[in-house]
C-alpha cells in the first residue's frame, strides 16, 4: 500500500531532486509537530512532581512511580476493560446488523424496500445531541442508566454502516446467490456463508471505524454513566484529571494510559486501519 501503488509517473524518476528533499524535510518537520503533544505527554508521565516545570523532553531521571500510583487502585484497568468490552460489543452488533440490513436492501426486491432504505438513511441527518435527552429519559424509565446496555444501546446499528455495507453487497454478483439458492441453502446461510466472505474488506473497515468511534466516544457515556465502575476510558480519564487538581504529571500519566493502548494497536495494524478508514471514508 505504500510505494507499489504510487500514482504519478513523476515518481518513476530515480534521481533525487533538491526540491524533493525540501518537501520531505517539510513533511517530516510537520509530522514531528503532530506527535509533539504525544511525546510531551509521555515524557512528563515519567517525571516526578518536582521535575514537571523543567520542560525537558527526556526526563533527567525517568521513573514509573506515577504509573504505579495511578494503576494501584485498579480504576484505569477497569475503565480500559469497560471501554474494550463496550466497543467490541457495539462493533459486533454493527457488523452483524448493518451488513444484514445492507444485504437485504441490496439483494432483495420487495415492497417497502425503498422506503426502509430512505428511512434508515434519513437518520444520518439526526444529530446524537438531539436524541440524548429522550434517550436519557428512556434509560431512566427502563433502568438503563449506569449499565453497559445503557452506554451501548444507541449505537447498536448505524445508518452509516448500513449504507456502507449496502454499497458493497451491490458489487456481489447475483449469480453467486442464485446458485446457492438452487443448491437449496436457506437465505440466512446464503448471506452468512456466501455473501459475507465476499465483502470482508468492507466488514473490517466497518469494524475498525465503529470500534474507534465507540472507543473514543465521550458525550453519551458522560451522561449515562453515574458510577466510576461503569466509566469508559475517556470519561474515567476526564474525571481523574479533574480529581488530580492540576497535578500535571499525574494527568499526563492518565492521558498516556488512555492513549497508549490504541497507539500500540495502530502501530501493529497500521496497514489495515489506514486501508479500512480509506474504504469507509470513500464509500461512505
Amino acid at each position: 500500500m505504500t510505494t507499489a501503488s504510487a500514482p504519478t509517473p513523476t515518481l518513476a524518476m530515480p534521481r533525487i531532486h533538491p526540491g524533493r528533499i525540501l518537501i520531505w524535510t517539510a513533511l517530516f518537520i510537520g509530522g514531528v509537530i503532530m506527535v509533539t503533544p504525544l511525546i510531551f505527554m509521555f515524557s512528563t508521565s515519567l517525571k516526578t512532581a518536582g521535575q514537571v516545570y523543567d520542560l525537558r523532553m527526556i526526563p533527567a531521571s525517568p521513573t514509573l512511580d506515577n504509573y504505579v500510583k495511578v494503576l494501584s487502585d485498579g480504576r484505569f484497568l477497569r475503565w480500559f476493560l469497560n471501554s474494550t468490552f463496550i466497543a467490541l460489543a457495539v462493533t459486533l452488533s454493527n457488523v452483524f446488523f448493518d451488513s444484514l440490513v445492507g444485504y437485504t436492501l441490496a439483494k432483495f426486491r420487495f415492497r417497502g424496500r425503498y422506503f426502509v432504505f430512505l428511512a434508515i438513511l434519513s437518520t444520518l441527518m439526526i444529530p446524537t445531541e438531539m436524541l440524548v435527552i429522550p434517550w436519557y429519559l428512556m434509560s431512566a424509565e427502563f433502568g438503563w442508566i449506569n449499565t453497559y446496555w445503557g452506554i451501548m444501546f444507541p449505537g447498536m446499528m448505524t445508518a452509516f454502516g448500513t449504507f456502507l455495507m449496502k454499497q458493497f453487497f451491490e458489487t456481489v454478483p447475483d449469480d453467486f446467490i442464485e446458485a446457492a439458492r438452487i443448491d437449496g441453502l436457506n437465505e440466512f446461510t446464503i448471506w452468512w456463508r456466501i455473501a459475507m466472505p465476499l465483502v470482508t474488506p468492507a466488514l473490517s473497515a466497518l469494524a475498525i471505524f465503529t470500534f474507534l468511534g465507540n472507543w473514543t466516544a465521550f458525550f453519551w457515556p458522560l451522561i449515562v454513566t453515574t458510577s466510576q465502575e461503569l466509566y469508559t476510558l475517556p470519561i474515567g480519564l476526564s474525571s481523574f484529571a479533574v480529581e488530580q487538581a492540576i497535578q500535571w504529571e499525574m494527568i499526563m500519566t492518565g492521558a498516556s494510559l488512555a492513549t497508549l493502548p490504541t497507539l500500540l494497536v495502530f502501530l501493529l495494524l497500521q496497514r489495515y486501519i489506514v486501508r479500512g478508514v480509506m474504504l469507509a471514508g470513500l464509500k461512505g
Binding site: Y136, S139, A140, G143, I145, T226, Q228, S239, V242
Partner: peptide, 20 residues
C-alpha cells in the same frame, strides 16, 4: 457509594429519576 464531585449533583438527580 461515591462519585466525582463534578458529576455528583447530576448523579443524584439521575438516580432520583430512576428511583435508585
Amino acid at each position: 457509594v461515591t462519585f466525582p464531585y463534578a458529576d455528583y449533583q447530576t448523579r443524584v438527580v439521575a438516580a432520583n429519576m430512576a428511583r435508585q
